[in-house]
């Protein structure tokens, strides 16, 4: 039974944080930051599946976020799709692209995926920047209203824009975390973690290593895509920055900082790296410097990531 509790405990902690934190918000602005943390947390949960479970590194996941985001901008105007269906369309396109990019690459051992995804991310970003007539270029493009808030209002639940996106993104994050935790203890997830431990041994127990790596890559691409869609819908605007190289690095950094092997840890990492720039606005010029320093210190002294290391310390004290 302890396995079951670990999963429910993670979800409970997450749900409690989402529900309780707003009581401490000094102003409505903080709902926005909260929602941003949840969206980043969602993308990073996908990284947990790819990097934490399967041990593969992608340096182009922002490309999928870009696809998800621009799907919400373009599909409603050009295809007449409802924005919610645009989210699904973006996720499908991202999944298919991940499959096409990953299939030839993941047959190879080593760091080919990192390099190939790096190229993929840059490609998506270039297309978004240069296809001005379609995407609006570097200036970005407007995204239609999701419309769910109005629907809730008709049902008698009147939320401010900030509140709505805070709770909506929180809910999506909870679902994303639930799915990732399901995977962890499932046969498919075990196969992913097995190949992370030893690809040779994974092969001898009959795991088709290339195939399950591809599964992880596609699933994590869908997470990034949905996160990109949520950012676009919330801001009602999107720029190619969402698909930029820095955003890809940020995702990996958040996961590794918090603890790529644990869903809660990675979301914790997303929280810290989303809040830190807010806290560091005073030293805006040194922001990158401080981030780099924090990252180095964590990698040197807390290699499992912040949260797992802290929990281990606490547990050690308890015994």
């Amino acid at each position: 039974m302890p396995k079951l509790t670990a999963k429910s405990a993670t979800l409970l902690v997450l749900a409690a944080l989402i529900a309780v934190t707003p009581f401490f918000f000094p102003s409505g602005y903080y709902y926005r930051i909260g929602a941003l943390i949840f969206v980043n947390g969602l993308a990073v949960t996908g990284i947990v599946i790819l990097t934490g479970y399967a041990g593969q590194i992608s340096l182009g996941h922002a490309g999928f976020a870009g696809i998800g985001g621009y799907a919400c901008a373009l599909a409603p105007t050009h295809l007449g799709l409802h924005p919610s269906l645009a989210v699904v369309l973006g996720a499908v396109i991202s999944g298919v692209l991940a499959y096409l990019v990953g299939r030839p690459i993941l047959r190879l051992k080593g760091y080919y995926l990192a390099v190939a995804t790096l190229g993929f991310g840059i490609l998506v970003s270039m297309v978004l920047n240069n296809e001005r007539r379609l995407t609006g270029g570097p200036d970005g493009i407007a995204v239609p209203e999701l419309g769910l808030r109005g629907l809730l209002k008709d049902w008698g639940l009147d939320l401010t824009n900030g509140e709505f996106w805070y709770f909506f993104c929180g809910l999506v994050l909870l679902i994303g975390a639930w799915i990732a935790l399901n995977l962890h203890q499932s046969p498919s997830g075990r196969a992913l973690r097995a190949l992370h431990g030893s690809e040779i041994a994974a092969g001898t127990v009959g795991i088709d290593v290339a195939r399950v790596k591809l599964q992880a890559f596609v699933i994590s691409a869908v997470y990034a895509s949905v996160a990109g869609s949520l950012v676009a819908l919330q801001n009602k605007f999107i720029t190619p920055d969402v698909a930029g190289f820095m955003h890809s690095i940020e995702m990996v950094t958040m996961a590794v900082l918090g603890g790529a092997g644990s869903v809660l840890g990675a979301i914790f990492g997303a929280g810290i790296l989303t809040l830190l720039p807010q806290a560091l606005t005073v030293f805006a010029e040194y922001e990158q410097l401080v981030l780099g320093l924090v990252m180095m210190l964590v990698m040197i002294f807390l290699r499992e990531g912040l949260l797992p290391s802290i929990l281990r310390k606490l547990r050690g004290r308890g015994e």
Partner: peptide
């Protein structure tokens, strides 16, 4: 693994 593997969607949900 070969006995317990199944559709990944069932595992995710």
């Amino acid at each position: 693994h070969l006995q317990e593997k199944g559709p990944v969607l069932a595992d995710l949900l």
